Computed example of a mutant assay.
Amino acid sequence: MNRPRYVVGTGADATTVLRRLAREGWRTRESFALPEAAWDVSDARLVLFGRIIDVETVRLAVLAAARGAGVVAVIECESDLGRALLADLSRVGPVVRGVEDGTSDALPLSEEQCQLLERLANGETIAAAAAAEYLSLRTANRRIAQARDALGVTTTREAVLAYIRRRRR
């Protein structure tokens, strides 16, 4: 299941996203600190939200995402903290910047995932694509697995085909 990860600029944008997620069955809670003792909270369908105000809240938001919670963070994306948050969250999985209405054909992939899929679409092996992008083979495989999850497919071949189809739009 694809975990929601949103970085928005205003509280109103966060409210829009949170209402849509609540309609889809997600539980929302303000604060990025996880109350559950278990490490993996992905089965809880929990979305944490709040304003990013310092490095500590960036750390908490990224940790929550890594533990399987959805995240809706309010911060100016072009600020230093915003760029740090986007970079760190993108390592966990795809991040949506701003409000997305669910009808967009935009790729739900990080730049790194797009680069890997582009190389695979051009006939490179995963090992060659990883080397060309200065990634370990293990990291490249994890990014491709995240891309498969984000695109809703089960095989790398299907991910590459979905990437090609969506890229052309």
Rank of each mutant, 00 (worst) to 15 (best):
R167I: 00
G9A: 08
G68T: 08
R45F: 07
F49V: 01
P108W: 01
V74Y: 05
L46Q: 00
V99N: 05
R157S: 07
F32D: 02
R91M: 11
W39Y: 14
I144W: 02
L89H: 13
I75L: 09
L137T: 12
R45W: 14
A73C: 02
N141K: 15
E76R: 03
L34E: 06
C114V: 07
R29N: 00
G70S: 07
L63R: 04
S136P: 03
A69L: 08
V62G: 00
L89R: 11
A64H: 08
G82R: 09
A14E: 00
V17Y: 01
R91L: 09
R167P: 05
R5I: 13
E30P: 00
G9D: 05
W39P: 10
Q113P: 08
E111V: 12
S110Q: 04
G123D: 06
E36K: 00
V96P: 03
D101N: 13
L161I: 05
M1Y: 08
L117E: 10
E76Y: 01
D88Q: 14
A128P: 06
E100Y: 13
T103N: 13
Y134E: 09
R167E: 10
V8M: 03
G82S: 04
R119G: 04
G11P: 05
T103G: 15
Y163A: 07
V8G: 02
E76M: 02
A73D: 00
R166M: 10
S110G: 05
Y163G: 06
I144N: 00
E118K: 15
A140V: 12
A37G: 10
R168S: 09
D88F: 09
V72F: 05
A12F: 11
R23V: 07
A147T: 07
N2K: 15
I53G: 14
I75G: 00
L135Q: 11
C114G: 07
P35K: 12
S110I: 12
R166T: 02
S42T: 03
A150F: 04
A127S: 07
L161S: 13
L85I: 06
Y163T: 05
A12S: 01
A140H: 12
L109I: 06
R67N: 05
F49T: 01
I53T: 14
R165E: 15
E30V: 06
G11L: 08
T139H: 14
L86P: 09
T57S: 11
T28Y: 01
I144S: 01
Y134P: 03
Q115M: 12
R29S: 06
